[in-house]
Design a protein around this nucleic acid. Structure first.
Length: 241
DNA sequence: CCATCATCCTGCCGGC
DNA sequence: TGCCGGCAGGATGATG
């Protein structure tokens, strides 16, 4: 793992290796390089990638630097939870944990049947399983709460108690929450910004996340703030059951 | 096997 | 006003 403070110097690209392609897998950013190398980045809580000029001074919390011929990308991370790996193509999935990830919810093959088959009858709360990256990859705390609200399902409900109709609504709700987040270019509750420093707008359309003890936007009931699966959780006791 | 907890870090906010 | 505990979008390994 490359995770010290030393800048990564690259020639045309990373250590002289051209970037072949960039993709996302769950919450991982995967950058395929020439000569069978792969650069993998996980932003975790506060990580950011920021495009900057070559001569720009170090950003606040800058931890790593990717230097190209005419531009640089700074990996900044206030809480230092984020990770950067440089791996061999053969072993990058193993090394980073990408191999454990479940289905991609925004791919065409993610159907209501696929979702229901993964979730049906599980022991433990709905929220716990939505957050489990080995079933569906990429659902975080915000989107789990929002999806539960859209589906009318309490996050602390036992997954095994959901009927087929509930599972179908939850599937649609997950898609709606994620697609909305993408469309709004991210949820900037606190730190999130894109590579050009631009904040997302998704925080403006959240129904429950971050609204604990405020009124439900649908029915006016005071939203419940609690802890489910070890994570801060908000739901409406009236709209969700 | 399961759920919960501590941990990695730093900053901020609310309550006292 | 100022200090301090608790909490924060994630993930993992330990604990009971």
């Amino acid at each position: 793992m490359v995770n010290d403070l030393r800048p990564i110097l690259v020639g045309k690209c990373f250590e002289g290796l051209s970037v072949l392609s960039v993709e996302r897998r769950g919450k991982f950013i995967v950058i395929f390089l020439a000569e069978e190398k792969v650069l993998v980045i996980h932003l975790r809580m506060t990580g950011r990638l920021i495009v900057a000029g070559l001569e720009d001074e170090a950003f606040l919390y800058e931890r790593r630097r990717l230097v190209f011929d005419d531009v640089s990308v700074r990996f900044c991370d206030q809480r230092r939870f984020g990770r950067v790996w440089l791996c061999d193509l053969r072993s990058y999935e193993e090394e980073t944990g990408i191999w454990k990830l479940g289905v991609e919810p925004l791919e065409a093959d993610f159907s209501t049947k696929v979702f229901a088959d993964l979730m049906r009858g599980r022991k433990g709360t709905v929220k716990k399983w939505l957050l489990d990256q080995t079933l569906v990859a990429g659902i975080g705390n915000i989107y789990a709460d929002e999806a539960c609200f859209y589906a009318g399902v309490r996050p602390d409900r036992e997954m095994g108690s959901l009927g087929e109709g509930d599972l179908e609504r939850l599937y649609e709700a997950v898609l709606k929450a994620l697609n909305q987040g993408v469309r709004n270019r991210g949820t900037s509750v606190k730190d999130y910004a894109d590579a050009y420093g631009k904040s997302g707008k998704n925080q403006e359309v959240l129904f429950v996340y971050g609204r604990g003890r405020k009124g439900c936007l649908a029915c006016g009931e005071v939203l419940v703030k609690c802890k489910v699966a070890g994570r801060g959780t908000v739901y409406c006791g009236e709209c969700q059951e």
